[in-house]
Each structure stands twice: as structure tokens, then as C-alpha cells.
């Protein structure tokens, strides 16, 4: 078993929490993991990405080779396109469609969606909308985690257990909100698959 995942977003959007939960879920399944993150300069409103590799065999490289990622999980639509060079020909793109516009030359939204639609295997949902519907606006990253569950090669139970372990220290309420968000994301993805 091997899943190589690129996580993409803008600094502060919570991609590292997604990575932490998947990583925890992988550990629960006794898998090997390596997860490389970006710290420093680019965190200030810049683009951020993370390489997450889970495998039943020891992982050599901290970075995923170009053209080898099984999955790109993006919490922002333009960011979902930035790392397409990592995606394998059989890989999936799972992205949020809600733009994060902190630059003046943000491209035309329709063109972004068109570019996403050009990919043969992609799932796009409005995770902010979904998060809003369930009353936890800040959990759109967990909605995206939910939407990507079908492609992780991990059971939804272990992802949920991962949430309990990662957010447990923040209290019952935070755990429940995140569990709900993941569930909503899974359903949203199912609806469009």
C-alpha cells in the first residue's frame, strides 16, 4: 500500500491539520509516513504545500517525485492547479472551489474551474459552503479531508480516530465539529463522484 499526497493551500488555511490527521490515521494502521512541510517566509499569506507519503514500506524520499502523486488535496482552487506537475497520470485532484483572493491579479474564477474540469479525475466542492451549512465555518479544511477519504486507501474509521487523537486536547466540542465536517465532506464528494 502506498499513497503519495500533495496538500495545497494558502498560509493559515489549515493544510497542516489535514496532514496531521491523515498521518495519525496512517500510524494507527502501522504504516510508514513522511510528511514535509513549509515553514518560514512563505507562511505569510503565501502559497503553502506539504508532501505527505504513507506506505506499508519504509519511505525513502521526503519529497514526492514529479508525476508520482496519487492525490492532490487543495483547500483553494487556484492552489489546486499549482502542483499539477506532481500528479501521476492516474492521480486524483480533490479541491475546494472557494477562492482565497489576497492578491490583486487573482485570475478569472471560471478559467480556474475550466482548468480543473480538464482533468480526467477530479472532485471539486465548495467546502466553505458545506462548512457553513453545518455551522462550523472554520472547519472547511476538515470538509476537504472528508472529501478526500475515498482516495486515501485508509478507512473512514481510522480517519475519525485520527481526528479524536489530534484534536482531543482541544475538547469534545472541537472533536465533534471536525468529525461532522469530515462526514459532510465525504457525503459531498460521494454526491459528485
Amino acid at each position: 500500500m502506498k499513497t503519495d499526497i500533495i496538500l495545497a493551500g494558502v498560509g493559515g488555511q489549515g493544510i497542516l491539520s489535514i496532514a496531521a490527521v491523515i498521518g495519525q490515521a496512517a500510524l494507527l494502521n502501522n504504516l510508514y509516513i513522511k510528511q514535509s512541510e513549509v515553514h518560514g517566509m512563505s507562511q505569510r499569506g503565501g502559497e503553502v504545500m506539504s508532501h505527505l507519503r504513507i506506505s506499508s514500506n519504509p519511505v525513502a524520499s521526503d519529497l514526492i517525485p514529479f508525476g508520482a502523486a496519487d492525490l492532490i488535496i487543495a483547500v483553494e482552487p487556484m492552489e489546486s492547479l499549482r502542483y499539477l506537475n506532481y500528479l501521476s497520470p492516474e492521480g486524483w485532484l480533490v479541491t475546494n472551489t472557494k477562492p482565497f483572493e489576497n492578491i490583486s491579479n487573482y485570475p478569472d474564477f471560471d478559467k480556474i474551474i475550466d482548468a480543473i474540469k480538464e482533468l480526467p479525475r477530479r472532485v471539486f466542492i465548495d467546502a466553505d459552503e458545506t462548512a457553513h451549512e453545518i455551522g462550523s465555518v472554520r472547519a472547511s479544511n476538515m470538509v476537504m479531508l472528508g472529501a478526500s477519504v475515498p482516495f486515501l486507501k485508509l478507512s473512514s474509521e481510522s480517519v475519525e480516530e485520527g481526528i479524536r487523537l489530534i484534536f482531543g486536547s482541544k475538547g469534545e466540542q472541537v472533536v465533534d465539529q471536525n468529525l461532522q465536517a469530515v462526514k459532510a465532506g465525504m457525503e459531498a464528494a460521494k454526491a459528485v463522484l
Binding site: 503565501g46 508525476g67 487556484m78 492547479l81 492578491i103 487573482y106 485570475p107 478569472d108
Partner: peptide
């Protein structure tokens, strides 16, 4: 051999770091 990869679409622009 290095695999052929999809290029990043031209519409993607950079987000230079900025003051909060």
C-alpha cells in the same frame, strides 16, 4: 527516465508573501 508531467496552467499566479 523522468516521467512526463502536466505543466502548471498559465493562469496560476504567485502569491508573494505580504505583511499581515
Amino acid at each position: 527516465a523522468v516521467p512526463e508531467t502536466v505543466a502548471t496552467p498559465a493562469i496560476v499566479v504567485n502569491r508573494p508573501p505580504a505583511l499581515c
